[in-house]
Design a protein around this nucleic acid. Sequence first.
DNA 1: GTGGTCTAGACCACA
DNA 2: GTGGTCTAGACCACC
Lengths: 135, 135, 135, 135
Amino acid sequence: MALWIQISSGSPEPIYSQIVEQIRQAIAKGELGIGEKLPAVRKLASELIINPNTVAKAYTILEQTGFVITKTGSGTFITDPKLRHHDAIDMNALAERIDSVIARGLSLGISGEEMISLFNNRLNAFVKNNDGDKK
Amino acid sequence: MALWIQISSGSPEPIYSQIVEQIRQAIAKGELGIGEKLPAVRKLASELIINPNTVAKAYTILEQTGFVITKTGSGTFITDPKLRHHDAIDMNALAERIDSVIARGLSLGISGEEMISLFNNRLNAFVKNNDGDKK
Amino acid sequence: MALWIQISSGSPEPIYSQIVEQIRQAIAKGELGIGEKLPAVRKLASELIINPNTVAKAYTILEQTGFVITKTGSGTFITDPKLRHHDAIDMNALAERIDSVIARGLSLGISGEEMISLFNNRLNAFVKNNDGDKK
Amino acid sequence: MALWIQISSGSPEPIYSQIVEQIRQAIAKGELGIGEKLPAVRKLASELIINPNTVAKAYTILEQTGFVITKTGSGTFITDPKLRHHDAIDMNALAERIDSVIARGLSLGISGEEMISLFNNRLNAFVKNNDGDKK
DNA sequence: GTGGTCTAGACCACA
DNA sequence: GTGGTCTAGACCACC
């Protein structure tokens, strides 16, 4: 449980971004609840065998996006979702990402129905986990 | 009709990548048919007011990905989708991209139902255009 | 029999080079004998639906390399192999091409034995044809 | 040891392609082992007295072909051959290249036996080095 | 330090 | 006319 982050160093996506993404997904899935404490920067860095600056950058971004709050001296904690702020810009960005995914799928020869089916499957993986936590 | 590509120079996504993405989407939507000719490198570059090398890089990537073929001296053309070949790796990458999109959406406070609805809407934009062509 | 040249317009190899290569192979296989007449430039160009200049360029290269001789007013003919001249440079170039092929093969996971076997198979295809002609 | 790449600037083969080819061969010969680091883009460029962009292009191609992975900020490294995936298309391309080599050799007046002998000699140069590493 | 992106502009090969 | 290659040099992101 202590270490659920997977880094692929040979990836076009920067490491700090991979960390941000995975923590965001963990929060979305409910694996990380409100107020829960993230691993210390140095500890996570040594476990992933990466530069502490890289972890720090990831945490900074998460804080700027409102997903976590860092209390100097005690650690970094998941924030209350109600406190997170989002722009209309975010919705546009999301729509663009969806378009991109659809174009990629269609180019793979996947039909519209299959795309929807695939999307539902992946979405259920998220929802299921959240239900599990709520029980 | 002549210019349907939109570049945002202040974006973290590189310009050449924006071009690749938009052309891929245009192909997926059927706006660009098989065998159709893309604008010449220098022409598109001057229209978008960017360097020809940047356009050339985008076209090169599209060629390596199998979406277009370039015939030196005559131009760059959309390939037949049947000739494109894809790996199982591509499917995994697609699933990961979907996960990423879902996490982003959920973190914006969007419910599962709304996500599905949004996804269907975007997908319809693609399918509609293709139906129009078939008629 | 009249038209045995196959052009793939969507190829990194220039068209004129494809023609040169295929004629060279036809000569090596014995499909084209000494003194035999090549199709006229304009005729071949119209059959392949390409620019006559492209065919002319191919014939020029074949002439410079000594494979054919053009007699103005009558046509282009295969030369006597004894009259062809080659440099030590050619041998080095050949060795480099072999190295390149081997590296490519090994990177595909093909063993040394398989490489030799494959090479022999392809070579036999050439020799067989020559035997067939001699009978 | 530091510099084993030879560039011939007067060659029809582009410089970036020469670099790609020689590194591929070095990998096939075992001169470059898994995980080994390639020279930095700027360093190799200054040693070969060419533009860094040209080296970068070569490295990019090697990455797209799966021979190396580049980790921005730390360097470019040889990948594990097991992770490289290839298509049946590659085998056809290889066979074509072999045909081309054979035709070129035969046109130089080299007999079939000599061709095989030559091929074996070049192949041994590769295998020997690999055996040496294994000891 | 590393590689990635982009520009400006030149030259060449191809059709 | 088309795209392909290369140079010179700048700026940025990553680690």
